Computed example of a mutant assay.
Amino acid sequence: MSTSRTRATLWVILASATLTVMAGAILGPIVPAIQSSLGVSESRAGLIITTHGALIVLVSPFAGALIDRVGPRRPFIAGLLLYAIGGGAGLGIDSFWPLLASRAVLGVGVAFVYTGITVLIYELYEGQRMDRALGLRSSANSVGAVIWPLVGGALGTLSWQAPFGVYLIALPLGLLAILTVPETGGRSDSDGGTTDSETGLAGVVGVFRRRPMLLGVYLLYFGANTLLYTIVVFYPQLLEGVGVTSSFSISLYLAANGLAGGVSAALYDRLIARTSRPVLVTVALVLWGIAFAGATLVDSPLSAVPPVVAFGLGLGLVFPSAFGWIEALAPVDRQGQFSSYLASAGYTGQFISPVVFGPLVPAFGVRGVFGAAALVSVGGLLVVGILGRSRAA
């Protein structure tokens, strides 16, 4: 594949990576408008944001299995088409249940796009080029988390349906993918990995038994997304306590979190060339412990900036590390299947975060949420240290 086409392929992959974040983020600013326009309760309006995530968790394993059978290109392109249909349908829907159904279609599309991107990177790049692509993919996610909510908020001033039009960007991306993304022949033993011929549940259990670190990678990704959503859900409440109340001002703090993650992820390939994934994850956990401990001490708008920046920097190290570990540990003929579990773990963490940490607010205040998150980060650091010592022994 020529250098120019390789570059075009990477840009299509990175642009598509921002869409997986956009799926829910772009509607965040207009939830109140959706609620009033459709005449539904706050919880029902919230389902418009979360339904696609539930479908991603459920559908991702099926997407991964299909990708292993037919390769990532066609499921990835089909996912972009479903994304455009499910997301863009909101332009012409003005009742709750049809809109909820369209969000389910969107979730199916995201599941195929998310896992398709992962396996495309595994199969199109190797070595430091793969590390760079994984870092840029995480950086694109972070940039998308900054840009798309602002776009949604701006279009929401026109009408509550206008932001749904942005989902249609997946259509031209799909056409570009047809032109630039090549078919891949998959990978075999000769690529440096091993295969596991067992299939079904017994095969999955067998892989985990032989490669127990896979479970640790899923737990890391689940925990990272759970902690991320303590920032997304509860940091605005903390900011209100120090006088930051406008939605735009709050969005700037969340944008700082995303930008910090984008910077560290963009540098990932250079960092991993000088150290190792365990070291980068350890640094991230230290940053998270400092960030959440600092959040419990926030007493002014200025002092609220370092915690979100520190957390974002750590997130930009953990996400590409998790994807890199899956590539190294999963059977080479089943990387779609095992990378799909990463998507399910991440979106489950996002969903469960307010359920786990929310009950702490009445008992300990919103600062109690970040105190608990700091303890979780320190616990993760201890686990990484123990595992490192046991391996050294």
Rank of each mutant, 00 (worst) to 15 (best):
G92K: 09
G92H: 13
I93V: 15
D94V: 15
D94P: 14
S95K: 15
F96H: 08
F96P: 06
W97A: 15
W97H: 14
P98T: 15
L99I: 11
L100G: 08
A101H: 08
A101R: 06
S102D: 12
S102C: 08
S102N: 12
S102A: 15
R103Y: 14
R103I: 12
A104L: 14
L106S: 02
L106W: 08
V108E: 03
A111W: 10
G116N: 07
I117R: 03
T118S: 11
T118G: 02
V119Y: 07
I121G: 02
Y122R: 01
Y122S: 04
E123T: 05
Y125F: 12
E126G: 03
R129E: 02
R129K: 09
M130K: 15
L134T: 00
G135D: 00
L136G: 01
S138C: 00
A140H: 03
A140L: 09
A140N: 01
N141W: 07
V143H: 01
G144I: 04
A145Y: 02
W148C: 01
W148E: 02
P149I: 06
L150P: 00
L150V: 04
V151F: 08
G152K: 05
W160S: 12
P163Y: 10
F164W: 13
F164S: 11
G165V: 13
G165D: 12
V166R: 12
V166T: 14
Y167R: 14
L168Q: 12
L168A: 14
L171W: 11
L173A: 05
G174Q: 05
L175P: 07
L176E: 02
L176T: 00
L176R: 03
I178T: 00
I178S: 00
L179N: 02
L179R: 10
L179S: 07
V181S: 02
V181Q: 06
P182E: 04
P182C: 00
E183K: 07
E183Y: 00
T184L: 04
G186Q: 03
R187T: 07
R187S: 11
S188G: 09
S188K: 10
S190V: 00
D191Y: 10
G192C: 05
G192A: 05
G193E: 09
T194S: 06
T195N: 08
S197A: 15
S197C: 03
E198W: 03
T199L: 07
T199D: 06
T199C: 02
T199K: 13
G200R: 14
L201K: 08
A202G: 15
A202T: 11
V205N: 01
V205Y: 04
V205A: 11
G206E: 09
F208A: 04
R209Y: 07
P212N: 05
P212C: 03
L214R: 01
L214F: 02
L215S: 08
L215K: 08
V217L: 09
V217F: 06
Y218L: 06
Y221F: 15
F222N: 10
A224F: 12
A224W: 08
N225A: 04
N225G: 03
T226G: 03
L227I: 13
L228R: 08
L228P: 06
Y229F: 15
Y229T: 05
I231G: 05
I231N: 14
I231D: 07
V233C: 11
F234P: 09
Y235S: 08
